[in-house]
Amino acid sequence: MPKDSAGHLIPGRISSRRAVPSDIPRPAYVGKPAPRKHTEGDVYSPGDVELIRESGRIAAQAIELVGQHVKPGVTTEELDRIGHEFLIAQGAYPSTLGYRGYPKSLCSSVNEVICHGIPDDTVLEDGDIVNIDITAFKNGFHGDSNQTFIAGTAQPEVAQLVERTREAMNRGIKAVAPGREVNVVGRAIEAYAKRFGYGVVRDFTGHGVGRPFHSGLIIPHYDSAPHYDDVMVPGMVFTIEPMLTLGGIEWDMWADDWTVTTRDKSITAQFEHTLVVTERGAEVLTLP
């Protein structure tokens, strides 16, 4: 089992990439070192928003299905298989597969992994938590979401972290309104998180999504970010995905150039939705 003597995660064995039927359209970045720079903005027509919603619904359903299989004894590799097979059955491409060389169809971030954990032969144990991050690409648009699940029964402070991270995301979403700068999202999230002494990760943020997987628009999850001053307007689409920790926010990157862990090995949770700014606030596009 890929954990060290202290119970902290270490890299496991990663299997080969899963096949995607040739009739499912790929994002343009597949097979390339990186996607092209996005220059078309983050505001979408109502018709395009509906296509993003379709991709988002598929991603949300995939996460819901994978979450039903999160339990002690299952490997994150098996969770990847479940998510992959669901996506292709819906005619959708797993957006992470081949994105900047990423080798799997979802991200599975266990315990101290902040984000971008690669599914492998890690076996979930009772009390572990795992974030499942899935993006579906269909009809030329991406829908991006994630949830944190508990395998078995977690310690009370860990279970509370999971639920409060979900609430932090919801508070960020409620802060969305046309005419406001995007930094209001982080202000709402950190104001809530600091009530419990949680660390609020700063270096990994929400982002514009739709035609591109990541557009370049940054949505901070922390307070004191006045330099992120893009003004929200109706039709703007982006993600909100706070990462909260039971300890610090310093992080380390594994040699795979993807897996990000808390430096102090503290437990961390994350939730994410893709949303569109409306005349009155925000509408979530990643619901099952």
Rank of each mutant, 00 (worst) to 15 (best):
Q160A: 15
L161M: 10
L161A: 11
E163P: 02
R166M: 13
R166H: 10
E167T: 11
E167D: 07
E167W: 05
M169E: 07
M169R: 14
M169Y: 01
N170I: 04
N170M: 13
N170L: 15
N170Q: 13
N170A: 09
K174N: 11
A175T: 00
A177L: 13
A177V: 00
P178V: 02
P178N: 03
P178E: 04
R180L: 12
R180Y: 13
R180D: 07
N183K: 14
V184C: 11
V185T: 07
G186A: 04
R187I: 11
R187K: 15
R187V: 14
E190T: 00
A193K: 01
K194W: 03
R195W: 00
F196K: 05
F196R: 02
G197L: 09
Y198A: 03
Y198M: 03
G199W: 01
V200Y: 01
R202F: 08
R202N: 03
D203R: 11
F204W: 14
F204N: 00
T205H: 05
G208C: 09
V209G: 04
G210N: 04
G210R: 01
R211V: 04
P212W: 00
F213M: 14
F213L: 15
H214S: 10
H214L: 14
H214K: 07
S215V: 10
S215N: 07
G216F: 12
G216R: 05
L217I: 01
L217K: 01
I218Y: 01
H221L: 06
D223R: 10
S224Y: 10
S224T: 05
A225M: 15
P226Q: 07
P226G: 07
P226D: 11
Y228K: 07
D229V: 00
D230C: 06
D230I: 09
V231C: 06
M232N: 00
V233T: 14
V233H: 09
P234Q: 02
G235V: 08
G235A: 11
M236Y: 04
M236N: 05
V237Y: 09
V237E: 05
T239N: 13
E241M: 06
E241S: 13
P242N: 08
M243D: 04
L246A: 06
G247V: 08
G247M: 08
G248P: 09
I249Q: 08
I249P: 04
I249V: 15
E250F: 03
E250H: 03
M253W: 03
W254S: 05
W254P: 03
V260M: 15
T261I: 14
R263T: 09
K265S: 06
K265Q: 08
S266G: 12
I267K: 09
T268C: 15
T268G: 14
Q270L: 10
F271K: 05
F271C: 12
